Simulated assay, not measured.
Amino acid sequence: MNNTDPETEPLPIAEFRGTTKHFGDVVAAEDLNLAIRKGEFLSFLGPSGCGKTTALRMLAGFETPTKGEVLLDGQVVNHLPAHKRAVNMVFQHYALFPHLNVADNISYGLRQQRPKLSVAEVADRVSKALETVRLPDFGPRRIWEMSGGQQQRVALARALINRPKLLLLDEPMAALDRKLRRDMQIELQTLQRKLGITFVLVTHDQEEALSMSDRICIMRGGRIMQTGSPRELYDRPRNRYVADFVGKSNFFDGRVTKASATSATMEAAGGLVISGTVTAELAPGQAASASLRPEQIALTRKPVEGDQTLGLQVQIVNRIFLGEHTEYLVRNDVIGEFLVLVPRQAEATEGSFEPGDAAHATWRAGTALILGKD
């Protein structure tokens, strides 16, 4: 029973209601329905062309919906121009002015406001913005004298100085190297918690979305496939597409032999029977896939005995050392190839495997997630 009174729930800071965007015959976004909560870090995640950037641009005011509504603070803003929305955007390539120094780049938006702010007020807010992004005393610096990470911080400061209610981030870390990208992810999370501003990020990087977001909106073909917390999407994906896109997973195809509201059993190739939980209703005879995460599988030299254990004899095809884990690609003569992720501690017990070695891949019965075909 849900005791939440809808009238007492806080108003979403932004909302899509049946929002659709067409570019000629191309459907970029189709029937989007999503409420963005105040103070959350939300990510749109999906491959190129899935509609995530179009959704962001409709929030910003750079695109107008073909039908449906975009709301900010409960007000329909379909035709409200971008400069009149309490929304700022950080672009993938930062869009900084190379002929202006850092301070002038950051203050550019403030200096367009009417009535005009005093010179002292602008200087004070620029100074505070630079402190916020940990670039004090960088005001006189030229843009071309700064690293990619520093330029990103300038772009953030320029967006934050206008005190937006909603900050939109269009793949702002795509141009950074891996280590700097991770550092900036932490910076963004810290900044968002400190300021309490709602952040909406567009990314195709699942690791980035999983590590930074309060909620993730998975998109495909212009539609929202599922929205939830990173843990919800990882542990309880609604379909194979989401399971495949969020993290790594092995899929064994077959047909359902038995199903209930919470679990199902299916028969895969070679008569392998796999049981597991379900996230959507399935029926006997229905085509399905068993999703098994690589870290849910153990790799041993001898068979593991037990009624609650399923095992396959495999051969090691390849190994990739990842530091705290080793990722093995293994092959079973009937099932085919799949991945196994072995913790370093487990390898210390069993020893490492080399390509060509024989091994046993095992997992507990009921561990898999049984999903209907998309």
Rank of each mutant, 00 (worst) to 15 (best):
N2Q: 11
T8G: 12
P10F: 10
G18V: 02
G18H: 03
G18C: 05
G18P: 04
T20Q: 05
H22E: 14
V26N: 14
A28K: 05
A29G: 05
D31L: 07
N33I: 00
R37V: 07
F44D: 02
G46F: 08
G46M: 01
K52G: 03
K52W: 00
T53S: 13
L56Q: 06
R57N: 07
M58D: 07
M58T: 01
L59V: 01
G61I: 04
P65D: 08
G68H: 00
V76E: 14
N78E: 04
N78R: 01
H83F: 10
K84N: 00
N88F: 13
M89V: 01
V90L: 05
H93Y: 12
Y94Q: 04
Y94R: 00
F97V: 12
V102Q: 06
D104F: 09
D104I: 14
N105M: 06
S107C: 10
Q113T: 12
R114E: 04
P115Y: 09
K116A: 12
V119T: 14
S127T: 15
F138D: 00
G139F: 06
R141F: 00
R142F: 08
W144N: 15
E145Y: 03
S147L: 03
V154A: 03
A155C: 03
L156K: 04
L156W: 07
L160E: 00
I161Q: 00
R163Y: 14
L180M: 09
D183K: 02
I186P: 04
E187K: 06
Q189M: 15
L191A: 03
K194Q: 14
L195A: 04
I197Y: 09
V200T: 03
L210Y: 09
L210C: 10
S213N: 07
D214K: 04
C217A: 15
I218G: 10
R220F: 09
Q226V: 02
Y234I: 03
R238G: 14
N239R: 10
R240G: 05
A243V: 02
G247S: 01
F251Q: 06
F252H: 05
F252C: 07
T257N: 06
A268G: 06
A269E: 09
V273F: 02
I274V: 07
S275T: 02
G276F: 01
Q286G: 06
A287K: 11
A290C: 05
P294E: 06
I297S: 11
A298C: 11
L310V: 12
L310W: 13
G311I: 09
G311F: 08
Q313D: 15
Q313Y: 13
Q313T: 11
I316H: 08
N318R: 15
R319N: 11
F321A: 05
L322H: 02
Y328F: 05
Y328K: 10
R331E: 15
D333G: 12
V334W: 04
F338L: 12
P343G: 07
G351Q: 01
G356D: 07
D357C: 13
A358T: 14
A361Y: 12
R364H: 11
R364C: 15
G366C: 03
L369T: 08
